[in-house]
Design a protein around this nucleic acid. Structure first.
Lengths: 181, 181
DNA sequence: AGCGGTTGTGCAACTAGTTGCACAATCTGT
DNA sequence: ACAGATTGTGCAACTAGTTGCACAACCGCT
């Protein structure tokens, strides 16, 4: 339910073609709402059909031809509506926690290596966020939009920090447990 | 991909009927892998067909009749395999962060109320986790399975703590921003 | 004995997200 | 000039998850 709104947000920040959007989803937007290029193209088609976006003129839209989109007023209105609307948090789903719980029943054999791998992934992600923070949010920069965006980034930083700490702790516990390692 | 394994874990902890499972998913298991009763019944059917579980005998299985399942050796083996297998973290999806990002573009009107609501929800969840911790993990209790389960619970506690703090912070920021509130 | 709520089981249809592939255009080295 | 890699766009099929409903059995009341 949120992909169209993620795309509208991205297009408002800057009109883009499908591929440019895909790239931006691999970076910034995708940090909290990921999507593949196939999803994006499909959704662009729908959004255009609904009158929320349109292709920028001065482009001949043949297949395999670059085509940029911009948001129409109706699209902006829909995004504002969605942003303000109450929404329940979506149901929790965390595979790693589930695996730990399963390990409590069937044993921890083979788990450690993957926990190390996840720890490494989270460390890397944390470093990337901190780099972005350093680059895009120097101390003086605090216009309203910047403050909101910085807030979002800080959520990312704190979440990755949490995971690295928790995984470190989990590996400690695992080390102290009996059984083959 | 994880629902069958969530069910196997739950059934190993205690053989149950569909409805009992549903209840347990509403409580403990569902805190990190939620599922509706429809999903659970469908999955129980599949797991039985695959030979991972079977109905406990001494039950005549008519429709609308209670039917309990237990895990077969093949099911336990499959769960152990899955637990140990390397798995990539699933792509991030967080609606709230996306909405904040959208708000940076279309404005924060109407957002505050829902942030308050979310804050309240997370506070409640945190309190519930802490209650469970108090009840199920008193200081002395640290057999291997307990330590793993406690670890999982602590992840829940820390995550909810993070969200309450972040939301409090976000509401502060929103309060300082210009514009109608 | 029969009505009305609750418990327990389940099917069907839909929506969102993923995976796999196809194909056009453009650039690059020979 | 053309072969092969790269860039950009897109369809189709599949899988996972959600929503809505149906129906049987039991339970308690009158």
């Amino acid at each position: 339910m949120s992909l169209p709104h993620a795309i509208l947000t991205a297009l408002l920040e800057r009109p883009s073609s499908g591929l440019e959007l895909t790239r931006r989803f691999d970076r910034s937007i995708g940090y909290f709402w990921s999507a593949t290029h196939q999803q994006i193209y499909r959704e662009l088609g729908k959004l255009e059909a609904e009158g929320y976006i349109r292709t920028l003129p001065a482009e001949q839209p043949a297949r395999g031809q670059k085509k940029s989109y911009e948001v129409l007023p109706a699209g902006r209105a829909e995004l504002a509506r969605w942003t303000a609307a109450a929404q329940d948090p979506r149901p929790q789903r965390d595979v790693l926690l589930l695996r730990l719980r399963a390990a409590a029943v069937v044993g921890t054999d083979g788990l450690e290596a993957d926990l190390h791998r996840h720890l490494e992934l989270h460390r890397r992600q944390l470093a990337e966020y901190q780099e972005i923070q350093r680059r895009d949010f120097p101390p003086g920069k605090d216009a309203p939009e910047d403050r909101l965006r910085h807030l979002v980034l800080r959520a990312g930083i704190d979440l990755e920090t949490f995971w690295t700490q928790w995984l470190t702790h989990a590996l400690d516990e695992l080390g102290e447990l009996p059984g083959p390692r």
